[in-house]
Computed example of a mutant assay.
Amino acid sequence: MNTPDADAINIRFYDHLWSRTRLETPERFNTWPLISSLVQNGSQRLEVGPGLRPRLPVRDSHFVDKSIAAVGRLQEQGGSAQCGDVCALPFDEGSFDLVCAFDVIEHVDNSRLAFAELSRVLKKGGTLVFSVPLHKSRWCEFDAFVGHVHRFDPQEVLAFVAENRLVLEQSAPFGMQPGNPWLLKCGMWFLRHQSRQAIFWYNRILMPLGLFFQKPLNFSDGLGDAALVDEIVCVCRRGG
């Protein structure tokens, strides 16, 4: 399970953020072409750790998140949302056709258990979509600031997939983190020292710009060439 420090950092950071942030609909993200196609064949679906950036349609989806603020807003919009932990999901084995976990697994100490839980609640033949930051050598101050515990080397991702009877069907470069180190440092300073103003600018300017300039996800079979990729989204099928 998570250490108290990791839990405390994540709960404090994200509950503070989501309590002052509006909910974005999944249609606005570049994941929507993928998700909309998967939803057609997945009547039972779960997203873990969505905050107020769900990639699944809120109505008729299940959500688990640690943020009380996020859970409340998802419930208001018709989602079946509850507080919980990716390492101890409150569902029976094989409950869902589709399970999503975007920007979640890197936030927990026991990533092996997180992968096992996401796979456990997935039906045979069901689909798991997850994203993780890559390359331990690229760990930076921003990772620690936003509550990351891990970055994953590509072979580590493949090992976790294989351990849980998953087949990695396709993957694509992912993420909206600015690549400019100066912008990252500037953003962290404002969040630390001027949080109200920083969240205002995030909601009104930065997030809309990020959504506008998103590039379509460029999927390739399997893991693809991940050498220059900072974060990846993977689409896996649960085997027997």
Rank of each mutant, 00 (worst) to 15 (best):
V39C: 11
S37W: 05
L118D: 00
C186V: 05
C140K: 08
V129A: 06
Q44N: 10
P54E: 10
L209Q: 07
P26E: 02
L118V: 07
S61G: 12
G175M: 02
I232C: 02
R138D: 00
L38K: 06
D5F: 13
A159L: 15
Q177A: 09
C87N: 11
S195A: 08
H135I: 03
A8S: 14
R192V: 05
L34K: 05
S111P: 01
G126H: 11
L228E: 14
F213M: 07
N203M: 10
W189P: 04
F91S: 10
R55P: 01
R53I: 03
F219H: 04
K66I: 14
V121G: 07
K123M: 10
V104F: 02
G147T: 00
G51N: 10
L166K: 05
L223N: 01
F200E: 12
P181V: 07
F115Q: 00
R237E: 11
L223I: 11
E47C: 15
L223K: 10
G147F: 04
V108I: 14
R73P: 08
A144W: 01
V157M: 01
I11Y: 11
S61H: 06
E231Q: 15
W201G: 07
K124P: 15
F13N: 08
F145S: 00
H16M: 09
V157L: 11
S67E: 06
F29G: 06
R28P: 00
W182K: 13
L118M: 13
A70D: 11
P50K: 05
V132A: 02
T3N: 02
K136D: 06
M1A: 07
E106C: 01
K185S: 13
A227F: 01
G78F: 06
I11R: 10
N203S: 14
Q197L: 15
D65Y: 03
R238H: 11
Y202H: 08
L223T: 00
F29M: 14
R120I: 00
V48N: 01
E163C: 10
N10K: 12
G42F: 05
G222M: 08
Q170W: 13
R165C: 12
R55N: 11
E47A: 08
D60I: 03
V167L: 15
C100V: 15
K215E: 10
D109T: 13
F130V: 04
R204M: 08
P90D: 09
A114V: 11
A162F: 12
C140F: 03
N41S: 12
A159I: 14
M188V: 09
V233C: 08
I232W: 12
I199E: 10
F96G: 03
G94R: 05
V233I: 15
D60L: 09
L168A: 05
N203F: 04
N180P: 04
G78P: 03
V157N: 01
T3C: 04
D92R: 14
G125Y: 11
N110F: 06
R12M: 13
R204E: 14
L228G: 09
A144G: 06
V233T: 13
I9E: 07
G126N: 04
V146R: 04
R22V: 02
Q177G: 01
L56C: 03
H135Q: 08
S131K: 05
S80A: 13
A69Q: 09
S19L: 08
M207R: 15
